[in-house]
Design a protein around this nucleic acid. Structure first.
Length: 201
DNA sequence: CAATAGATCATCT
DNA sequence: GATGATCTATTGC
């Protein structure tokens, strides 16, 4: 019974409640900035997110309805959607919106705050701490997040999200999303302005 | 610095 | 059979 040691001063922190996730994806994406992701020995502060919406958002995996892959996006909020991309990488999303309504948030970059030595071992290509988790594929490698966590409940499972005890004031910048061709100009990417750990400034 | 090729496979047409 | 919510190494200015 020692599966998930909390590496942080998380004692004062709160686990994000289901109601946090049961809201529009755009709001959740903005509000996730500054929150803490914990998995195993590693922890990271979310510094960059992207919102993926319901049926009008053709860039979203859920745009063409429920498939084996996309069913968790239509499920209850507060679960992980982890998918495999480019034959090589995995990306972590947070399912939001009420059940049966599609919508999720892609976590694009983390500021490492715990288990940094473990992250370095998993990411030998990263020469600087800034590069450990400054991209959707990099952060899943650094934190050991795989498709095995697809559908995991963020309130009960091995992967959890916390509101830190003290949230410093941040300035949020909004830009178009990265790496998509459809709806490419929609302003649905959010990042902490001036943070060194975002994927692209 | 910027641009680009190559890796590599689940998913959906 | 083509595509993709990416990353790294390499090449070229």
């Amino acid at each position: 019974m020692s599966g998930n040691p909390a590496p942080l001063p998380l004692s004062e922190s709160e686990l994000l409640p289901r109601s946090f996730y049961s809201r529009p994806a755009v709001k959740v994406a903005r509000d996730l900035l500054g929150k803490i992701v914990v998995h195993g020995e590693t922890a990271g502060r979310i510094v960059e997110t992207e919102a993926y919406l319901g049926k009008d958002d053709l860039a979203a995996h859920s745009a063409r309805g429920i498939t084996p892959r996309t069913q968790v996006i239509f499920g209850p909020p507060g679960h992980a959607y982890v998918y495999f991309i480019y034959g090589m990488y995995e990306c972590l999303n947070i399912v939001c919106e009420p059940e049966n309504q599609p919508g999720c948030v892609l976590i694009r970059a983390l500021e490492p705050v715990g288990g940094i030595d473990v992250m370095r071992r998993r990411r030998p290509a990263a020469k600087k701490t800034e590069a450990l988790a400054n991209g959707p594929g990099k952060l899943t490698l650094a934190m050991g997040i795989t498709r095995a966590l697809n559908g995991a409940d963020l309130l009960k499972g091995p992967l959890r999200l916390y509101r830190p005890a003290a949230e410093p004031g941040i300035r949020i910048r909004t830009t178009p999303r990265i790496g998509i061709s459809q709806c490419a100009d929609w302003p649905l990417r959010f990042l902490i302005d001036g943070n060194r750990f975002v994927s692209k400034p």
